[in-house]
Every structure is written in C-alpha cells, then in structure tokens.
C-alpha cells in the first residue's frame, strides 16, 4: 500500500516537473511577451498543482495538518496568479507592445495595440474610460 502511494506521488511530482520544464521551454521559444505569458501559466496551474498533489499523497492530512496547508497554498496560488498575469498583460498593452501574430498583421482588437485604439473598436460604454490619463 505504501509503495503504491509513494509511486503515485512520484508520478504526480514528476508530471508536475515535466509541465514546469515545458513552461520554461515555452517562455524561451515563444515570440513575444503575450504568448510567453501563456507558457508561464502552465507552471502556475498544472505544474504547481501536480507537484502539490504529489506532496499531498505523501503527507496525507497528517497530525500537524500539513495537507491542509498544502491545499491552502494551491488555493491561494490559483486565486492570485491570474490577477498578476492580467496586470502584466495590461501593462504590456498600455506600454504599446504589439501582440505578435503569425502573418504580421494586427489582430482584430489591437490595431495599434494601444488601449485607446482597442476601446475605439469596442462598444460605446468603453469610451468613458479612455479619457483618464495614463
């Protein structure tokens, strides 16, 4: 029984490691900041998730409640990482970075990739916010 659990936890931890390595590989391989963020989110979700799950299998809930703490780490990670990714993506766009596309033409919502231009293409409700200074 113990051997099975330890084997399972190894499989999970190694799988999490594989996703983390893939994530790093993607950050190197992809062409621009936006696509690289997609690669980085691999380590945030399945990378961290599988490693913590693997540790959870080994630790169990435990007398000192290690399992609870591991679950809380994962929950907080899943709550905070999208906020950071969103802030980073918006900062990149506001700073005037043009999202990379395959044929080099702008994507439909990012003509010049400035926020103001994006809003010009969006519904009227957006225009209000474009007045604020950046």
């Amino acid at each position: 029984m113990d051997a099975i659990l330890i084997g399972l936890s190894w499989v999970l931890i190694v799988a999490g490691g594989v996703f983390s390595v893939l994530s790093g590989l993607g950050v190197v391989r992809f062409p621009d900041v936006f696509t690289r963020m997609h690669a980085a989110s691999l380590a945030d979700t399945l990378g961290a998730g599988l490693i913590i799950l693997g540790l959870l299998v080994q630790a169990g809930i435990g007398a000192d409640l290690v399992g609870i703490k591991l679950i809380l780490i994962l929950v907080f990670l899943l709550f905070t990482s999208p906020v950071v990714t969103h802030a980073l993506a918006q900062a990149a766009l506001r700073d005037g970075l043009t999202p990379w596309t395959r044929d080099g033409t702008p994507t439909e919502a990012g003509l010049d990739s400035t926020v103001e231009e994006d809003e010009a293409l969006a519904p009227d409700a957006l225009r209000k916010t474009s007045g604020e200074g950046t």
């Binding site: 989110s41 979700t45 969103h86 918006q90 766009l93 409700a125």
Partner: peptide, 11 residues
Amino acid sequence: PGTISVQLAGG
C-alpha cells in the same frame, strides 16, 4: 492557459 484577459470594460 492559452487565454489571458487583458482588459475589462462595458460588459
């Protein structure tokens, strides 16, 4: 992964 929300406005 694969989708990022960049901005939210007006629904």
